[in-house]
């Protein structure tokens, strides 16, 4: 036993001891690091109260910049008038701009090369214009004609008004569309060109004010005029008009809004048809569609009279 006590410390046992301490120490260090860097911060983070939007704000307002509808308000401004000299005749820059805009706005119906064969063309009646065939142009293929068509659209067709595109860009589109049809466009009408140039010179493009949608909701909700519900006569009232009103109206609140919005639409038959058409969402009973003209006039008289009464202080 005395031999064991006097065993000299060898290199090997020293190294083992060091390794032991190193292993133990690094284990402790890793544990502390785990807690210090991950667990404790995570726990502290968990304790922080979650941000909550005030209750009178719509929930979407909290997503702020992520939501296009909630971009901060910006004041509207006027862009200066366009110099006609830069847009009246095609140039490479204008055509390049036109191509970009055409791809964005027109190809879905008119097709990549303007042949009227875009993906959505099949759903349209009449079908979209084929720009490459001179005979297909119904509203003229001169500069001023095309500009007008783009700006106002074509009523009764799928062609919408692209008035939200800036005039210079519309002109770029005009020139690009014309470049698609490789036929002779003939001479321009100088008078129409002059009028177009005057129009460009005289008027800039107005960019309107923009506000976040949540603010618009607030504004429009506060502006909303509350329409008082129609006062149906009590059930004891057995008069013919009271019975008729009770028969024709299912929701006095909605009916009041409908009456306020549509009584000035014209003659009795139009109003009656409108009320029957919107039933029952507008507060009138669907069965009211079967009423005859005399009954309708009775109803209108009762309701409009009632509304006039309600307006009196």
């Amino acid at each position: 036993m005395s031999d064991e006590q006097s065993t000299p410390t060898t290199w090997g046992s020293e190294a083992k001891g060091l390794a032991n301490r190193f292993a133990l120490g690094s284990g402790v260090a890793v544990t502390f690091l785990l807690f210090g860097l991950i667990v404790v911060p995570a726990l502290l983070r968990e304790r922080r109260p979650l941000p909550r939007p005030p209750s009178d704000q719509p929930a979407a307002a909290s997503v702020g910049w992520l939501d296009q509808a909630e971009t901060p308000a910006s004041k509207g401004r006027d862009l200066p008038p366009v110099d006609p000299a830069t847009v009246m005749t095609p140039n490479p820059k204008l055509l390049a701009r036109g191509e970009v805009l055409f791809k964005q706005n027109c190809t879905s119906c008119h097709g990549e090369s303007g042949q009227g064969n875009g993906p959505a063309a099949g759903t349209l009646n009449p079908r979209p214009r084929n720009f490459t065939q001179p005979a297909d142009w119904k509203r003229g293929f001169h500069v001023a004609d095309i500009f007008t068509t783009i700006s106002t659209g074509v009523k009764g067709t799928g062609m919408a008004a692209f008035d939200f595109i800036m005039p210079a860009d519309r002109m770029a589109l005009v020139h690009y569309v014309r470049s698609l049809g490789g036929f002779d466009h003939g001479a321009e009408d100088p008078k129409a060109l002059q009028a177009l140039a005057d129009q460009f010179r005289s008027k800039g493009f107005h960019i309107p004010n923009r506000i976040p949608v949540s603010l618009a909701i607030k504004k429009m909700v506060t502006e909303q005029a509350m329409v008082p519900p129609l006062q149906l006569r009590p059930a004891e009232d057995k008069s013919a008009s009271a019975e008729l009103l009770r028969f024709a109206i299912v929701d006095p609140f909605r009916a009041a809004r409908t009456v306020a919005a549509t009584t000035n639409r014209g003659d009795l038959s139009t109003v009656a048809r409108a009320w029957a058409a919107g039933a029952p969402d507008n507060g009138f009973a669907p069965a009211a569609a079967g009423l005859n003209a005399a009954e309708w006039s009775e109803i209108v008289r009762a309701l409009v009279g009632r509304r006039e009464e309600a307006r009196q202080p």
């Binding site: 409908t258 058409a277 919107g278």
Partner: peptide, 12 residues
Amino acid sequence: GTLLSNPLPLIQ
């Protein structure tokens, strides 16, 4: 468009 009107009040 000529016949119908919005029956809902514009509230929040």
